[in-house]
Simulated scan of single mutants.
Amino acid sequence: MFEHMTADRTANAIMQDSTFKGTNLVVEGTKDYKFYSKFFNIENTVQIKQVGGKEKVREVIELLNARNFNEKIGIIDSDFSKILSDEVNTENVFLTDFHDIEVMMFGSPALETTLNIYTTNEKIEKFLDGRKLRGIILDLAKQIGFLKLANHIYKLGLAFKPRQPQGKPLKYKDFIDNRTLDFKGNEQLITTVHNYSINRSDKVIDAKIVEEKVKELVDDKYDLLHLVNGHDLSNILFFLLKKVLRSPNMSLYDIHSIEDSLIMSYEARFWIDTELFKKIYDWGLSNNQTLFKEDIEHLYNKLRLEV
């Protein structure tokens, strides 16, 4: 509903809802709703509004701030903000610990639980042959991360997803080997994305310039958990399970299967260990608002007493 409304109309709708007396949580999209509804008390004290994008979350919260409407917070993905020292300073807007919520989940034991849903430990260990799984996946995702960062900084006009949700996605098999999960090289990655961007972007910069801009960034040392994109991590995980390990699990249908499994596997004990949770918890205390489900509040307070 709110995805198709302007920020102004969304803010008006939130303020005019006299039937709800709790806190409005404004998030980017459906995936965020699925994730945060696990932990916030949406039965009683919190309403989650998915508004369709990071900038719109900021705009809605800024409008509500200006109108002195206090019962609201927003959560957005950090994206490249910490790498570029361009962190959001909008009051009552909170950022994910890392690039996005998928990266937060990837760094937790939810990854191992998700893998166990779709394959066996024996298959994983045989594939790894002593290597570290997170390291392999991060090393692949960082290659795409550098390209996305260059696109963000230099406005290269590249497209990494279809204009419409039902459109054809980027083909990861064109730059990742579907037998070994080996990276086919930056030239192949850039060629794939550049070709994909034609007719999906208003103006695409020449591939040679794209390659030069990526090279300018590759030598810099970035925190990979802020560089890599969760969408790429999920795609690589799907590629690994479906193509390389050939999972027979019929529920492994597409990337959404991976994202949903990670959300399902991400436990409260992982959530309360994040900086995002702690900042929002403190906001609730300061504003006399109970935001989280009772079992999560109980677990957090119990663990604090044990420290």
Rank of each mutant, 00 (worst) to 15 (best):
Q47K: 15
I153P: 01
K142W: 15
L63D: 08
Y266F: 10
N178S: 07
T30C: 04
I209A: 07
D254E: 08
L299T: 07
F20T: 12
K184S: 00
M250G: 11
H194W: 11
I263V: 12
E187S: 08
L237A: 04
L95T: 05
I280Q: 09
L227H: 02
L291S: 03
T30Y: 10
Q47E: 13
S37F: 05
R131L: 02
L133A: 03
I83A: 08
R163K: 11
G74K: 08
Q50W: 00
D79M: 05
K126N: 13
I117Q: 07
K161R: 07
L138Y: 15
N178T: 00
V57D: 05
L252A: 09
Q164L: 12
K242D: 04
D32G: 04
M250V: 13
F39G: 02
R304N: 01
F94D: 00
K34L: 12
S257C: 06
D295N: 13
V244R: 15
E55I: 03
K278S: 12
G135V: 04
H4V: 11
T180G: 00
N287L: 12
N178R: 04
G107Y: 00
S261M: 10
P165K: 07
V26G: 01
K279G: 12
M15H: 06
K213W: 11
D139P: 01
I48C: 03
I61T: 05
T19K: 15
N116R: 06
T114F: 15
K221N: 02
A66S: 15
K148W: 08
Y33S: 11
K54M: 09
L262N: 00
L237P: 03
S37R: 08
D79F: 04
G230E: 03
L303P: 04
Y154Q: 02
F35I: 10
S265F: 14
L299S: 07
R9T: 12
K221D: 03
D86Y: 12
N288Q: 14
D77G: 05
F292W: 13
E297P: 01
S37A: 11
I137C: 05
Q166E: 14
R67A: 10
Y281N: 15
L225R: 06
W283H: 14
I75A: 03
L140G: 01
Q188I: 06
N151L: 03
Q50N: 04
E275A: 10
